[in-house]
Amino acid sequence: MALRLENVSIQLSGRPLIQPLSLDIEPGETVTLMGVSGSGKSTLLSHVAGDLEPPFTAMGQVSLDGVALDGLPPEKRRIGRLFQDDLLFPHLTVAENLLFGMPRGPRPERLAKVAAALAEAGLLGFGDRPPNTLSGGQRARVALMRALVAEPRAMLLDEPFSKLDADLRQTMRSFVFEHIAARRIPCLMVTHDKADAPQSGRVLLLREGRVNHA
C-alpha cells in the first residue's frame, strides 16, 4: 500500500497556493511536510482526505495503492486523520467513540477490539467514561486509537501534537509513530515544528508554494 501524489497543486480562488507536487509515501513510512501557518499545508491534507471546500480547488492526482482517489468522498477513502483537536464525540463514551469508526461485525468481536485498543492505549477501564472526564493526553490517545480501529489504509496527521505539553508530546509522538509503523500504512504529517517529525522519516519544506527537501 502506498500513497501517491502526482502533480498535485492547490489554488485559492484560482490563484496558485501550492505549486504542482509529486510524492510517494511507502507503507510504514511517515513523511513530514513542514511549513509556516497559512502556507497551505493543512489544505493539502484536506485535499488528500477528500473534503477540500471552496474557495480552494485542486488539480493533479492522488492515489492509494494504485487506485485513484480523486472524486471519491472522504468516507470511502479509508484515510484516517488526526486533527489538532482530538474531536472526540462528546455525546458518546470512550468505548462508543472507538466503536464509532470500527467496521461493522458481530458485537462481541467489536467489543473485544475496543478492549484491546483501550489496553494498548493504557486506558483499560475507561471505556464507559465520557470523553470530557479524561486528561488531554488520554484524549489524544483515544483519538489515535479511534482512527486506527477504523482500519485505515493511510493516515494523515494535522499538527497532532501542537496542543500537548512538552512532556506529553514526546510520549505521544512515539506512541503515534509506533502504532502507525506497526500497521504498515503510509502516513503524511504536516507541522510547523521540526521536533514533531520522526527521526527516520523524510522531511519536506513548503515555502511560498514550493516543496523542497529539507
Binding site: A49, D51, F83, L87, F100, G101, R146, A147, A150
Partner: peptide
C-alpha cells in the same frame, strides 16, 4: 463541522455522520 469531518475520516458517509454525530 470538524466533528463531521472526523466522522468522514472514520468511514462514515455524510448521512451516517449526520445521524450519529
Amino acid at each position: 463541522r470538524a466533528e463531521t469531518r472526523a466522522a468522514a475520516s472514520l468511514g462514515h458517509a455524510p448521512g451516517s455522520a449526520f445521524l450519529r454525530v
